[in-house]
């Protein structure tokens, strides 16, 4: 990890891609996360689960990444579902009304399974 402590790792489960994000998502690290999502779109992978389990911090620059892609993802029949968000990060999502726009699940598997049933 670099000094700004952010990591994104990808794991594919058939047509669903899980992006596990770790550390601090701010204006400095957001481009790295953007790049990971862009890579999925280039490969026509529109079903995504973002696993927040190890994310400690998010600023509006990080929230902006979700807003920047959600329209394109949904137009292509996919979604960005969120999982395992800690209370601190959830509070920031909640403060801005983001839970109205994104499905948030307690576990990664629950979020993956949701793609299978819809």
């Amino acid at each position: 990890m670099d000094q700004n402590q952010f990591e994104v790792t990808r794991q594919d489960h058939d047509d669903v891609s899980v992006l596990a994000i770790k550390g601090f998502l701010d204006a400095h690290t957001a481009p790295e996360f953007e790049f990971a999502i862009q890579e999925l779109l280039q490969n026509n992978r529109y079903k995504m689960v973002v696993d927040f389990q190890e994310l400690n911090y998010i600023s509006s620059a990080g929230l902006g990444v979700f807003m920047g892609f959600i329209e394109e993802v949904r137009k292509n029949g996919g979604d960005i579902k969120l999982a395992q968000m800690n209370e601190k990060v959830f509070k920031i999502f909640d403060l801005l009304g983001f839970p109205n726009l994104y499905e948030i699940y307690k576990s990664r598997n629950e979020a993956i399974q949701k793609f299978r049933t819809t």
Partner: peptide
């Protein structure tokens, strides 16, 4: 207007509001 903001999938400009 957060309702409009979210429904139009706007990006950025939330810093001062926060």
């Amino acid at each position: 207007d957060m309702v409009e903001y979210l429904s139009k999938f706007k990006k950025g400009g939330l810093g001062i509001h926060l």
